[in-house]
Write a protein that binds this DNA or RNA. Sequence first.
DNA 1: TACTAATGCGAACGGCCGTTAGCAAATTTA
DNA 2: TAAATTTGCTAACGGCCGTTCGCATTAGTA
Lengths: 193, 193
Amino acid sequence: MSSTQLSRKEQIDQVATSLFKSRGFAATTMRDLALELGIEAGSLYSHIKSKEDILQRVCFKMADEFNAAFDEVKTKDVPAAEKLRLAVAAHVRVLTKNPPAAGVFLNEWRHLSEPSLSKFHDMRFQYEESLREIVREGIASGEFKVTDEKFVVLTLLSSLNWLHMWYKPEGKMSPDEIAEFLSNLLLNGLKNF
Amino acid sequence: MSSTQLSRKEQIDQVATSLFKSRGFAATTMRDLALELGIEAGSLYSHIKSKEDILQRVCFKMADEFNAAFDEVKTKDVPAAEKLRLAVAAHVRVLTKNPPAAGVFLNEWRHLSEPSLSKFHDMRFQYEESLREIVREGIASGEFKVTDEKFVVLTLLSSLNWLHMWYKPEGKMSPDEIAEFLSNLLLNGLKNF
DNA sequence: TACTAATGCGAACGGCCGTTAGCAAATTTA
DNA sequence: TAAATTTGCTAACGGCCGTTCGCATTAGTA
């Protein structure tokens, strides 16, 4: 069924990702990971550099995906409310496309060591700042009735970023339906505050 | 300034809690913990049974606090919308009273082993079920315009449960102001869906 | 004062951890 | 076919982990 053949390294990353998500990075051992792949722990090192090496790839790949999805939205010339709706949809799409990776991205990044950790922080700040910018636009234009754009973005991301905890691809709601539901709920809150 | 004198065991729990929150349970060593307290690792075991022993106390103490705060709300005879508002306020109050413990409760519970883990799951389900019940009430009475109470509660808790990540007691918003802001945002969303 | 509980030290235990090294197949490429 | 790459094994390393043990010291209590 799966279309493209994964390289051994990609397989390792994928299996590691779901283990990192379900058990946590620190609580996942290389021997666990090897067992899941049906090989010995030492054999992993023919393909990867280190345990954190995997974590880095997962975290920054997800960061790239969030940025790419968001960059498309940024360029659109639409009212702030609509732009925010698109941003929410983009965020949900990335989040639901690969829930294990999303979970690692959201919960395990703190196990990155410097300088990756700082780089990650920066990227995250940039992303959030872009969202705040949209909300500021909406406040200025009178579309949103709130005043504290920081708080709004925090709440927005909070409700989105828990998604990976319960979302199941086989569930009855599609990512687009989820995105629409969340947009409605949150944007109506902003407009009628 | 602090009113009551903490026993050594309570001190350990408290310091451990903030370490568990900032580094994660698995990545916090007993030697780290001991260092923070200015004693040797072995000395900890004059006061506690095991590392997980601490985690259990923190998790179930927080669970009790959430339940206690919520039980007060349950008994009130008010419309569903108002009840939900009170529940949100209660939840925020517990969450902000002790952010490190809240963080452990929300993110580190998975390191509990059986049978604690199952017990924790059950308590959590009960709590969420009670919230769903309120939302169902509100849907039935026409106060809320949504249809999927599961999704609503998930979104509600999501936005609340990220709070401990950025809330600082010395910040400019008080817990009550935060609770009011969140209630307004989310309830307006529900009513005008 | 004598007893008891609380508190802590230092050394050590068995075990698991991430990682490395040297070597051997198998597979791909030329 | 020959060379190069990919993939994997076994064994081991140094180190850190949670925890235990026996013993000392201190503080509270009768």
